[in-house]
Design a protein around this nucleic acid. Sequence first.
DNA 1: AACTCGGGGTC
DNA 2: GACCCAGAGTT
Length: 357
Amino acid sequence: MNDFQRKIIQWYNLNKRDLPWRQTLDPYRIWVSEIILQQTRVDQGLAYYERFIARFHDVRQLAEADEQEVLSVWKGLGYYSRARNMHHTARRIVQEYAGVFPETCHQLLRLKGIGKYTAAAIASICSHEPVPVVDGNVVRVFSRIFGIEAMAGTTASFNKVWERSSALIDRDDPGTYNQAVMEFGALCCKPANPGCGQCIFRNDCFAFGNQMVDRLPVKKKEISRRERWFTYLYVRVGGGKVLMQQRPQGDIWQNLWELPLIEADHLLGPAEVSAHPVVNQGGELEEIIAVNPKDYRHILTHQIIHARFYEISGYQTGEAFEAGDYRVMEDPLVTGLPVSRLTDRYLHWRAGNMQGL
DNA sequence: AACTCGGGGTC
DNA sequence: GACCCAGAGTT
């Protein structure tokens, strides 16, 4: 056993957090946890993991559910393709693998939603395959300790970190080794204000020795964000129902539901909304009865969404909309329909402020 | 290799 | 406001 793995595993045994997916070696549960934790902090994913496992106990239950149910459990977590891919892969595992997860990293890699990181994580934890994981934590820890200066996120960086970790991995317990490096990155070797003072590698760390801790790993330039303007219409149809539509393919929030949307290069004023076809489609001009007082500013990785919500009074001929893209449905708050965080925020605000209307 | 896909915690 | 999180799929 080399010095690095001995020290990091000892540190891990003393400092690791008590997390539910560390109580099992069930590939299904490890898989669920790894997908949830993609680009997601442990604190944020924890409740979702508990809910997901409670609702879908095993891969067969997940395979038997419809996608809408899976998306509903995922609602608010973001990167919804993870949920769609999991559902797809669950069905494939049941049909092609008789419900038994593949064991090797190579086989796992062929499943939708499972990339290099997740394949290595599942294989090393569940099957003791000695393959290193390379995630944001591992890149940071290795870049600092060993002075890897390749820009984070590039294949050069990935390959150098992978080679280093591959040479140091504990071949008897690769799963614990991998989790130890990640946990160390999450708790000690943090992006900002790392705990170098009490770090077990402070005498060996390249970055610490060269005062480069704040410059490693080398970060890539900030991405630009596209601005978009969404004017949403809460159209009350009658009987407590409202018009809804499903998000299109190839855009954000694919397959989630939302209110009728007018996207333009600005947020629409009341006059523009009144003149809009959606508002007049019932045959006569309907009345705008409310607008949320403050426009929303919803920030995604590559987009800034400006949003405004109008509430429009009762059509009695909602059936007219069934022919188009719109559907007459119960308020999504009641039905648990999968909606974006933006829509969810508005609906909750409305429920708390519009009781009299 | 570059882009896109969410949402939120942290500094 | 910038950064970045137990990344993956598409182009």
